[in-house]
């Protein structure tokens, strides 16, 4: 246990010294603060006045999207150095010469990356929550339910980018992670899903589409479930299957990371 905590402590110290981490964190907080300025008791969307419970739903959703977005960006940033950071500077030789298994090492690092990214998401949602509680004069804690479900999103992006960084150079892995995150917005669009699943679409296109849905991590879909649960909206069985897809994706990512890392030579 001490050894496991040692790895976590080491990685915390490493990330705590990175300027990029504070830059992204600062930008995130700034965005949350700016968005908070627009919260008022009368918000108009598409010339429709939003008030009451609907207003809170909209504000909660904006808060969730903003907090998760910056959490995901930080997850990508931290994920690229989780497995390979110490390999590139060769500090890994000293660390693995101590009585630590490679599985312990990589799991501790992944856990650290997740804790940091999720904590930042939580901090941003708390800032946003304080702002809208004060400005809208409501006391509503359901945002944290959404943030809790979105923890899977954070864990998934950290693992996904870590896995890619074991295969590709770090910067490229970060780019792939970012692009995959953006691409998941497309695969998460309902009308696109409906189009692909409709009977008019050729079988081959359907197969390709299904493969794409399986390969692309379901970031946006998990996000949508978090949003629905948080806002007490109906969640279909299909949407819940995305949650299972996310959990399975995470397990597969972890399995591959451990397998590749255990085979690596330093």
């Amino acid at each position: 246990m001490i050894r496991f905590c040692g790895i976590i402590y080491g990685y915390f110290s490493y990330i705590g010294r990175r300027k990029t981490f504070y830059l992204v964190l600062g930008l995130g907080v700034l965005f949350v603060l700016i968005s908070g300025c627009f919260y008022s008791e009368n918000i108009t969307i598409n010339q429709r006045l939003i008030q009451g419970e609907n207003l809170i739903k909209v504000v909660r959703s904006i808060t969730l999207y903003l907090s998760i977005f910056w959490g995901m960006i930080l997850g990508i940033l931290i994920g690229i150095s989780t497995a390979t950071g110490e390999v590139e500077n060769r500090h890994i030789e000293l660390v693995l010469s101590k009585p630590i298994t490679r599985t312990e090492y990589i799991l501790a690092r992944l856990l650290t990356a997740f804790i940091i990214s999720f904590s930042i998401t939580l901090v941003m949602s708390i800032i946003s929550w304080v702002i809208y509680t004060l400005r809208l004069n409501v006391f509503d804690l359901r945002i944290f339910l959404g943030i809790g479900i979105s923890a899977l999103d954070i864990a998934l992006i950290v693992s996904f980018v870590t896995l890619i960084s074991l295969i590709l150079p770090r910067l490229l892995a970060g780019f792939v992670g970012l692009m995959t995150y953006f691409f998941s917005f497309i695969t998460g669009i309902d009308f696109l899903k409906g189009f692909v699943l409709s009977e008019d679409v050729p079988t081959f296109t359907k197969i390709i589409a299904r493969i794409i849905y399986i390969i692309v991590p379901p970031f946006t879909n998990i996000h949508k479930i978090a949003n629905s649960v948080m806002n007490r909206d109906m969640v279909s069985r299909g949407e819940f299957s995305n949650l299972i897809h996310g959990v399975l994706y995470l397990i597969i990512c972890l399995f591959l990371i451990i397998s590749i890392f255990r085979r690596k030579e330093f």
């Binding site: 001490i2 050894r3 110290s13 500090h91």
Partner: peptide, 25 residues
């Protein structure tokens, strides 16, 4: 190692404490 890559961002004492933790002391 031949060219030991130490955690340069750490203080000497903290770095040694960290290695002590990795050893499970």
């Amino acid at each position: 190692p031949e060219e030991p890559a130490l955690p340069m961002y750490a203080k000497a004492k903290n770095a040694l404490l960290y290695y002590g933790m990795l050893l499970g002391l």
